[in-house]
Design a protein around this nucleic acid. Sequence first.
DNA 1: GAGCAAATTCCATTGAGTGGAATTCTTTGC
DNA 2: GCAAAGAATTCCACTCAATGGAATTTGCTC
Lengths: 288, 288
Amino acid sequence: MKKQADDLAAPTSLQRGLRILAVLGSAPVGGMRLSDIAEACTASEATTHRLLKSLIAERFVDQTTERRYRLSLDFFSLAACAANPDNLRDICRPHLIHLSATLNDTVFLLVRSGFHAVCVDRAEGPFPIRSFTGDIGGRIPLGIGQGSLVILAFLPEEEREEVIRFNIPRLLDMGAMDEVVLRTEIARAVAQGYSGVETGIIPGMTGVAVPIFDTNGRVVAALSVGTLKERLGPDRRPTVIELLRREAAIIGARVSPFDPALRRPAQYLGGVVAPLAAASRVTPGDVS
Amino acid sequence: MKKQADDLAAPTSLQRGLRILAVLGSAPVGGMRLSDIAEACTASEATTHRLLKSLIAERFVDQTTERRYRLSLDFFSLAACAANPDNLRDICRPHLIHLSATLNDTVFLLVRSGFHAVCVDRAEGPFPIRSFTGDIGGRIPLGIGQGSLVILAFLPEEEREEVIRFNIPRLLDMGAMDEVVLRTEIARAVAQGYSGVETGIIPGMTGVAVPIFDTNGRVVAALSVGTLKERLGPDRRPTVIELLRREAAIIGARVSPFDPALRRPAQYLGGVVAPLAAASRVTPGDVS
DNA sequence: GAGCAAATTCCATTGAGTGGAATTCTTTGC
DNA sequence: GCAAAGAATTCCACTCAATGGAATTTGCTC
């Protein structure tokens, strides 16, 4: 198909550069070598090298000694600005902290992004927790894990079916669940208003999650608690769910997908993190 | 100067695209309009529009309704892979959690990146804390705030002087401190082995930070506690510092700037987050 | 220290990137 | 509800920046 060919070949040099970033995203700790990057991008080494120079010039990529390349911390820092869609993260932070302090468990904020859920924030309890989404920034197909599943469950039917169709192969690949189990769990989540799947994929762990609806009534996110199985027994469970629900309701009331008030000409340079380009333009020598 | 002109003009289209990302990084919550982006990048609207299309195709940028553009969550998710230089974040997480649970306060992990310190992780105490670096991903010039200052203080002299020369204008701009205060604080931090600056910039708040040295004896990061002033009085302070020191020592012993063992051919696709490009290549329709 | 492999630079060719202009879509004011 | 203004998007011919093969340099290995 031509369409697919279009996708695979990156016609623009910008896209080639962005794919280098994507490839570097899954690089091992030490970074990647030029030849490996070039191969992964199916581009010549000369081209890859030149693109990398641009990426380095804009501070998106670091070159370590050892002739290896990796994503830079500045890049991380820039992208952190993207973690706050519709102000969700800022709105939720105090609630996450409050919940985590109350429950003494780890609480996650998951936000939908296309066919995935992304962990946008978390407030840790007193011990490390293994979760599907992994850490902040972690992505997981919609349907795997409580938070992710509860978002899927409350999507409008048409969208939900589209996501299921798209994600089923992934779920199977990951050995998470088949379509029957998924649909059962979705039905249960809808009926209960929360999700408490026990996939058993992470042994000894469990969790519950509730959806967050924006002021239009659309699911945009989920609040999720992950903990040890013994900490979600019949005694604690109902209370935990009730507390999550309460916070989710408060949060949802403050989330509108687009606030017309924001149309005023904004101060683009007022953010915490200055644009990378601006920073890179100034070199130490320039200081008089 | 020609050199500066080179910096300002973005000759390659990749760099133009990256600058769009940088500009979008400081966009307000609602996103930015095409014309504003074009102006901020000093590029024509036609070019900006075409570049944005590529950025969207690679899922680095979202176009909201309302004809606005913003950084995507996938972009955030990709960049999260960059937050773990030399495995620092993974190594530190359990220690952060342990400290935060022990002290009942918020603990930050700051890593040096050029002339800045970047907050790479944090474990929250039971109430929200205002800090210089802001949240995860926040950047601050080296010298402002305890963690940032303690990194600066323990840099090798030559590097330290370079950073000071570069950052002084910033510190003055931010009203943080002048050179005399900075050098006094640095000397004190070196003498004490920790930093406990009281800039008074964030009223009622204070903190202490200790450096983390890698196995080569170079400062690479700092552990920092931020809390209310009354929680760091003469009674608690020495204990807090001692606890931080102990964890920092354990961490440092595990951090080597480059581990030759990692040279083995790595499995680049084994990460939590698949490369964006790969994800974007698959469309719902492709599922058979 | 020689030999090898990887990274970096060079350069002539070519087609992708560019911005002005035309078109389409939105919003606003009356 | 209509018209005019303002954005966003598309088009297109020209041009210069991107390309990849080849040459050079660097760094690693034995």
